[in-house]
């Protein structure tokens, strides 16, 4: 059982990185990115493509992926999503939902339906022995530590930097923020650029840890969303803990019956939504 829980926490690390991207965009501009899961998957495929075509080492691919992601996010927000922002959530939802369909089918066409993965050599089997009966994989551990670093980094960015303040300012009151000299559209583009870095990181890890296939996107979006709601909106550490709860629940579910693992995760989400709509770890004021 202990092993299942530890596996669940490590899985939660991956979900946390999914969820931070969603949380960041929603927090700064109340924008729901329905294509998040598909963007994670396409990042995984791009990484695999670079590995096959360019023959780069996995680490180099990751480093190359981040600036590409930032620029695409910045441009996507600046050219497309900024045009959809209003009180009405419909246009941005339709645009990201449409993008989700476009990405899925494009990947289907280019790579086919088969799942693929990013070759990490001996790292995929490397393990750390915690006790004679308990070994955890090095790769999941790296992902988990990255999740902590990302959560801490985002929290720090929001609380203590000028970029973070500008994010909070446009989210609090866009009009007044512009009176101070900020360009809200630029701030939004920066936020999405950053969110795309998290998405690319998530796709890179997903490709290394398991497999990616073109139709996987929606379920990743749902996991990310569940982690955000379970943890409680508005706090990155809440999202982190929410992801842990989701990961553990799914893993326990899988342990009990492989057919019910995901369902079990959904169930916990529904119970939390029903009993504590503000999440298990809501942000406390003051």
């Amino acid at each position: 059982m202990l092993e299942t829980i530890i596996q669940g926490i490590l899985l939660g690390g991956l979900y946390c990185i999914f969820a931070l991207g969603l949380s960041l965009m929603f927090g700064v501009m109340r924008l729901t990115n329905i294509a998040l899961g598909d963007q994670i998957i396409i990042s995984g495929f791009i990484a695999i493509g670079m590995a096959t075509v360019l023959g780069f080492n996995v680490l180099w691919i990751g480093l190359l992926l981040l600036p590409i992601a930032y620029i695409s996010g910045f441009c996507f927000q600046g050219w497309v999503l900024n045009r959809t922002l209003s009180k009405d959530p419909l246009p941005s939802l339709v645009v990201t939902f449409g993008l989700s369909i476009v990405i899925q089918n494009t990947l289907q066409m280019v790579f086919g339906a088969n799942p693929r993965s990013l070759d990490v050599g001996s790292l995929s089997t490397a393990g750390v022995e915690l006790s004679p009966s308990l070994t955890v994989g090095v790769l999941p551990l790296i992902i988990f530590v990255s999740a902590i670093v990302c959560t801490f980094g985002l929290q720090w960015l929001f609380a203590h930097t000028a970029i973070g303040r500008s994010f909070r300012a446009v989210s609090d009151d866009r009009e007044v923020a512009e009176l101070m000299g900020l360009s809200a559209k630029r701030v939004f583009a920066t936020a999405t650029g950053l969110a795309f870095c998290l998405i690319a990181l998530a796709g890179w890890f997903q490709g290394m840890r398991t497999t990616v296939s073109p139709s996987d996107g929606p379920s990743l979006l749902l996991f990310a969303f569940e982690a955000v709601i379970i943890g409680g909106m508005g706090s990155f550490w809440g999202t982190f803990l929410g992801a842990m709860v989701l990961g553990v629940t799914q893993q326990v579910g899988f342990h009990y019956d492989p057919g019910w693992g995901i369902w079990f995760g959904h169930l916990v989400f529904i119970v939390v939504l029903f009993i504590k709509p503000n999440g298990l770890f809501p942000k406390t004021k003051g």
Binding site: R30, L31, T32, L221, F225, E226, I270
Partner: peptide
């Protein structure tokens, strides 16, 4: 809003 959309999907 947007989270209603994903919620209905779940």
């Amino acid at each position: 809003g947007g989270y209603f959309a994903i919620g209905t999907w779940v």
